[in-house]
């Protein structure tokens, strides 16, 4: 599908008098010929895989193949169970679940790359925690995923969701924007408010570089997924109070792309700069990755 921007999405949805989540399914159906009910079923399956990933990530406690990550989701979850987190239950669970998915990803578990594998923790973390704490049905969660996907689609089309092209702002930034939109949606925001939630999240990670240690999706990616669940929730909560991004959504997305392409290649997933070139990063890279 092609969507030119958030503004166009809002206009199309008004013109057709259907919500954005429905518009997304209709656009996909137009493109692929797959009937709407089958598309809905596939999104429902996506949500099941997300829930399973969190469950497995928390239970398995596997270390990654490299040994660089693993066990933090459980550590954080223990704190929640002991009621000693500083954050609300929804907020802290979202962090734990994002970490769990991201660790599951690092240990070759099955995940949904929404929008990418490296940023796969944020959206499920926020959405599944919200469902547990706010108690809505799966149908609402599926509509939230479609709403989040509309944001991700516009970012992919107008900008990029690839760390190699745009740095981490393009991956975890897009993931946090999608999660912020989902969090706003499930708590009753109209689409325009969801879009501003997404924009506030994206705007506040502009310039973020992609500098993974030893080229692996682990350091700093796993913990960043956890922290960005928090960013998404904060952005959504601000949008729900009536706060709007001063710079409109489409302009912020375009800016993310402009910043991405002007970023030096050493900070765009090549592991030739940033944290990857710290003494510790270099030492890890040396002992890893020999076939």
């Amino acid at each position: 599908m092609y969507i030119s921007g958030i503004e166009a999405l809002i206009n199309d949805s008004k013109e057709k008098n259907i919500p954005v989540w429905q518009l997304m399914m209709e656009l996909e159906c137009e493109d692929t010929g797959v009937p709407i009910d089958k598309i809905y079923e596939r999104v429902s399956n996506v949500y099941s895989v997300m829930k399973q990933g969190i469950k497995d990530g928390l239970e398995s406690n596997l270390m990654s193949v490299s040994g660089l990550s693993g066990g933090d989701a459980r550590l954080y979850n223990n704190q929640i169970e002991k009621h000693s987190s500083m954050l609300s239950r929804f907020h802290s669970k979202a962090i734990a679940y994002s970490l769990a998915t991201s660790e599951h990803n690092a240990s070759m578990g099955i995940i949904v790359a929404a929008p990418t594998a490296g940023a796969s923790g944020i959206l499920p973390g926020v959405l599944v925690a919200a469902q547990e704490e706010f108690g809505f049905d799966d149908d609402t969660a599926i509509k939230a995923l479609l709403t989040a996907a509309s944001i991700g689609t516009v970012i992919a089309i107008r900008a990029t969701i690839s760390g190699a092209q745009g740095g981490c702002q393009a991956e975890c930034g897009a993931g946090a924007a999608m999660a912020a939109a989902a969090a706003a949606f499930v708590t009753g925001s109209p689409f325009e408010e969801c879009a501003h939630a997404a924009t506030l999240a994206l705007k506040n990670c502009l310039g973020l570089v992609c500098d993974p240690v030893a080229g692996l999706v682990e350091v700093p990616c796993v913990k960043r997924n956890g922290v960005f669940a928090s960013l998404a929730i904060t952005a959504a909560d601000m949008a729900k109070s009536g706060i709007r991004s001063f710079i409109p959504p489409d302009e912020v997305i375009d800016t993310m792309y402009q910043i991405g392409v002007t970023m030096p290649p050493s900070l765009r997933e090549t592991s030739k700069g940033g944290l990857a070139l710290t003494p510790t990063g270099i030492e890890v890279a040396k002992r890893m990755n020999k076939l």
Binding site: M1, S64, I111, T153
Partner: peptide, 23 residues
């Protein structure tokens, strides 16, 4: 550029990297 809904809500894959593992 055209994008599928399941490029954004997917692919469903083993981790850790869509390019280095799924691809």
């Amino acid at each position: 550029m055209s994008v599928s809904l399941f490029d954004i809500l997917g692919p469903i894959t083993v981790g850790p990297s869509s390019s280095h593992t799924a691809g």
